[in-house]
């Protein structure tokens, strides 16, 4: 599942959110998208599951431009976990099954374990979950569709260290198993830990692209 961004620009009103970005996001590894606030990181992520349309240029998946694919099928193949967890139902079991109601309860428990939660978490009410627990439930909910690509938008930015560690473990397991992960993170250390490939955006433009050890932004970044 290789994505190609071909001279992609996104304009909203007078603001240019992405400016002529060309890059290849390779299959089977974790690509980190990093850069300062307002650089266009989340915009780039939302192009990949067609929650946004480029104003110029094309996004191509395995040789096919995205608009030529069935958009609902695309979103099931390319899962997205947002920065802030949004829970939709009253019980964790139902929550994990929102996208695929036929998941058997036993598989729900396995998905929760995969996301670093106890298996019996399925029986919990969603009200009163901590931010970290809620985010891991959202991750399990996305994994329930068995996506070929997982997009993560700053998934650990507001989490406690234990929850952040659990989510990082999922990312590592997925990319070790040959899955494709695109991780938006402003955390340079996290990008170094997880990514095999790094894209640096600044003010909507592609500034650097390559393996983490060659990325100046990660070396110079004052962020932890």
């Amino acid at each position: 599942m290789t994505f190609v961004l071909d001279a992609v620009s996104v304009r909203r009103g007078v603001a240019l959110l992405l400016d002529d970005v060309t890059a290849t996001i390779r299959a089977g590894e974790c690509t980190a998208v990093t850069g300062p606030s307002g650089a266009g990181k989340s915009t780039l992520l939302r192009l990949l599951n067609r929650m946004l349309e480029p104003t110029a240029g094309r996004v191509i998946l395995q040789g096919t431009p995205l608009p030529a694919l069935d958009v609902l099928d695309l979103r099931r193949r390319v899962g997205l976990v947002a920065q802030r967890p949004t829970l939709l139902t009253g019980q964790v079991l139902d929550e994990v099954r929102v996208g695929r109601p036929d998941v058997p309860p036993e598989e729900v428990r396995s998905l929760l374990a995969e996301a670093g939660l106890p298996r019996d978490f399925a029986d919990r009410a969603t009200a009163g979950l901590s931010g970290g627990e809620a985010q891991r439930v959202c991750l399990a909910r996305a994994l329930a569709l068995r996506p070929e690509v997982l997009l993560l938008d700053e998934p650990t930015s507001s989490l406690d260290p234990a929850s952040a560690e659990a989510i990082e473990r999922v990312v590592r397991d997925l990319s070790d198993a040959g899955g494709t992960v695109v991780l938006v993170s402003h955390d340079a250390a996290q990008a170094r830990r997880l990514a095999g490939d790094v894209i640096v955006l600044r003010a909507g433009r592609l500034e650097e692209h390559g393996p983490p050890q060659e990325i100046a932004y990660l070396q110079s970044s004052a962020l932890p």
Partner: peptide
């Protein structure tokens, strides 16, 4: 809005995402 988008991220159609 966040809840509607969360459903869309899971491949639900606009109608399904707005059904509640």
């Amino acid at each position: 809005r966040p809840a509607i988008e969360a459903r869309l991220f899971l491949g639900l159609s606009a109608r399904e995402a707005f059904a509640p």
